[in-house]
Every structure is written in C-alpha cells, then in structure tokens.
C-alpha cells in the first residue's frame, strides 16, 4: 500500500467513492444525504491524484447504496469510481451512469417553469446521455446537465 492511501483509514464494510472532483465533493455529500448518516464517514478533501491533480474521496462504513441512489451522482460527477467493500476486500466496482429520468435532483433553468414557482419536485427526461442533454417534463425546456444547478 502506498503512503498516500493511508491518509484515510481502511474500511471493513461499506462503500468507497473515489476520484471526486474537489469542487463537487459537497454536492456528493448532499446528494447521498451524508449529513444525516449515523455510521462512520471518512472524507478526504484536496488529496493528491495522479489522474486528476487533486481529488476527493468518501468512505462510508456499513452502507450500501442502491443503483438509483448512486446514479444520481452522474449528474455532478460522471467519472467517479465506486467500490463496494466487504471484509476489507473490494467485492464490486461500479460506474455511475446517467439514468433515463431525474426526479428531484436538478432545477429547471427556465424561471417561468412551474417547478420554480410551486412547492413540487422537478422531473427531467434525459434525451442524450452522451451530451448530457435533459428536458424538463413540465415546461419542455432543454438544458445541459453540466450547467444544471442542484435542487
């Protein structure tokens, strides 16, 4: 094991989310509701990375997320690495992928959209996964997911 990886302690059971761009760390924390978590969560911020320069990492003990929960991350961090750990071993690696529908995750960028004026959940249809184009279910405006603001 290299020294760099020892900065955050090893996990016996749980989920590791690695290669998070540093400016998106807090979005990931919000999307997975980590503030409400009672199990042990270790967060590394501004760590050195060969691939990215700097990165962030989150290790969440004793918690395994559903694919639907993890796929929400695709909105802010399409390229994170997900590892499922059991007994200190990586038993599964996952990629996040943009789901067909996004409910309650991002805001519509049309100020005249009903979703920005009524207490209700937003709902988007993903129309181009590669380009990241989404269309509001309500007002039909299209937007680039990379420019989207989270709810």
């Amino acid at each position: 094991m290299k020294r760099q990886e020892l900065i955050v302690s090893a996990l016996d059971h749980g989920t590791v989310i690695d290669h998070i761009p540093c400016d998106r760390l807090f979005d990931v924390i919000d999307l997975l509701h980590l503030r409400q978590m009672t199990s042990k969560v270790t967060i590394g911020f501004n760590l050195k990375s060969h691939k990215m320069g700097t990165k962030s990492i989150i290790k969440i003990a004793d918690r395994f997320f559903t694919d639907a929960e993890l796929n929400q991350l695709s909105v802010v961090t399409p390229n994170v690495s997900l590892s499922i750990i059991r007994d200190y071993e990586v038993v599964e690696k996952k990629q996040v992928c943009l789901p067909d529908e996004l409910r309650g995750i991002i805001r519509c960028n049309n100020p005249n959209c009903i979703t920005n004026n009524e207490p209700m959940a937003t709902f988007f249809h993903v129309i181009d996964k590669e380009q990241g184009a989404v269309r509001c279910h309500y007002c039909n405006h299209e937007q680039d997911i990379h420019q989207a603001k989270l709810v």
Partner: peptide, 8 residues
C-alpha cells in the same frame, strides 16, 4: 402564465 402549469 407559467410554463408546465397544465402538465402539473
């Protein structure tokens, strides 16, 4: 006057 009001 709001877009999407009818769908909602």
């Amino acid at each position: 006057y709001l877009e999407g009001a009818a769908r909602y």
